[in-house]
Simulated assay, not measured.
Amino acid sequence: MKKVLLLAPMSSVHERFNKVNINILKDLQCEIHIAANFEHGTNETIQHNLRYKKQIEYQGIVVHQMPFQRSSLIKNLAVIKICRELFKKEKFDMIHAHTETGGLITRIAMSSNSTTKYVFTPHGMSFYKGSSLKSWMLYYPIEKWICDKMVAVMAMNQEELEVLKKWNKNNERYIHGIGFDVNAIQKTIVNKNVKRAELGIPQESFLILSIGELNENKNHETIIRALAKIKAPNLYYLICGEGHLKSYLEDICNSYNLSNKIIFAGYRRDISEIVHIADLFAFASYHEGLPVSVMEAMAAGLPIVCSKIRGNIDLLEDGKGGYLCKPGDVDSFAEKLNLLIYKEEQRKKMARTNLENIQKFSKDVVYVETNQIYREILM
């Protein structure tokens, strides 16, 4: 029986992104191990993570609690020794590391004489077209160094695939994302009136939805400033996510007298329901790998106005399922949002396009792609 470790800093990565990988490894009759921090975050988050830990342990998966820290390389240096000892003790046949932090820690902890085969999924490299010179000078060599010793690196967008081809044509692979559960979204039944009332949204309002952490990258500020330019009556904006910019964004809303029209819903576990009560999805992020939130919106049949960046352009063709704008272009976002607010037939046409196009990113498609890669490595 082959022994495989799936490693990521936070348990949420496994819960959200590794479902298909776990199912494949089960079908291949592998002994599955998972390493992550299940004890990081708020009390509510930790309790949820521990429930997930029990759930996967019940499935026979071996869990390793690791003291990873979010977004802090210095604090994560202590994990290197723990990983090195775990790798040496268990002698895994394959280790699949996720995210830049997971990949870097794994790369440092590798043994030079190990027979373990290493796989890496970046989930969005930190350098990208349009990013700063500093990010290219810092992250480009780090990511290249990480990828150099991997037997396979899984790209989820074409921009990263082209970079990997330049680095090492022997280990680059392309998969259509994480294996998105399209049916889970499309089969979700929700009472629109009840859900809107729960969130404080009037029944007859036009609702624009965004999903993502309240941080600089997700760029909710651009959407808020764009909405300030739109004079449509009964327009509401719902933001699902939490983060350190909440007070800052609330101040912007106050400056435009939009506080009664913009709802900060916090972190939600009912996104599959919320996407069905919106009329349009807005997403102004500066960089992504392949954004799950956009896929959720597509699966729910929402037209989309989003930033013209890596990941988004893999999911959406401008003018087909929605519109693409430069990330910080407030006027462009305002123009496209305003256009779709008043063009119902155009929204319906874009909805049909998204419902069709999302199928290529489904878990069934990604299962086949990833299964082939795992078999090549393990068998």
Rank of each mutant, 00 (worst) to 15 (best):
K3H: 02
K3F: 00
K3R: 14
L5C: 09
L5D: 06
L5P: 03
M10T: 10
V13N: 10
R16S: 07
N18F: 04
I22Q: 13
N23W: 01
N23Q: 15
I24P: 03
D27V: 00
L28M: 14
L28F: 04
C30K: 09
E31H: 03
I32Y: 04
H33E: 10
A35M: 08
F38Y: 15
N43T: 00
N43Y: 00
I46D: 02
R51I: 00
Y52K: 05
K53N: 02
Q59R: 13
I61V: 03
I61C: 02
Q65T: 01
K75F: 06
N76G: 06
V79D: 08
I80P: 08
C83G: 09
F87Q: 09
E90P: 03
K91Q: 15
K91G: 05
I95D: 05
H98A: 10
G102I: 02
R107W: 11
M110P: 08
N113P: 06
T115L: 15
T121Q: 09
H123V: 01
G124Q: 08
M125H: 14
M125E: 11
F127V: 07
G130C: 05
L133Q: 15
W136V: 06
L138D: 05
P141K: 10
E143W: 02
M150S: 07
A152H: 04
N157I: 01
E159L: 09
V163M: 14
N170Y: 02
E172G: 01
R173N: 13
H176V: 00
G179R: 06
G179Y: 02
D181F: 00
V182L: 08
N183L: 06
I185H: 06
T188D: 04
T188M: 13
T188K: 14
T188C: 12
V190A: 11
N193W: 08
K195N: 08
G200H: 08
S205E: 09
S205K: 09
F206A: 10
L207P: 02
N217T: 04
N217L: 11
I224H: 12
K229L: 13
I230K: 12
A232P: 00
L235Y: 05
Y236E: 12
E242P: 01
E250L: 05
D251Q: 15
I252H: 11
C253I: 01
S255R: 14
Y256E: 15
N257H: 13
K261Y: 09
I262H: 03
R268F: 00
I271C: 07
S272E: 14
I274G: 06
A278L: 08
A278Y: 06
A278M: 10
A278I: 02
D279R: 11
D279I: 00
A284Q: 07
E288W: 04
E288K: 10
E296Y: 01
M298Q: 15
G301S: 12
I304V: 13
C306S: 14
I309A: 10
L315H: 05
L316S: 06
E317S: 15
D318I: 00
G322D: 07
G322H: 10
L324F: 03
D329T: 00
L337Y: 05
L337Q: 11
N338Y: 01
K348M: 04
K348S: 03
N354K: 14
L355D: 13
E356A: 11
I358M: 10
F361E: 07
S362C: 02
S362R: 06
Y367L: 11
T370Q: 15
E376M: 11
L378N: 05
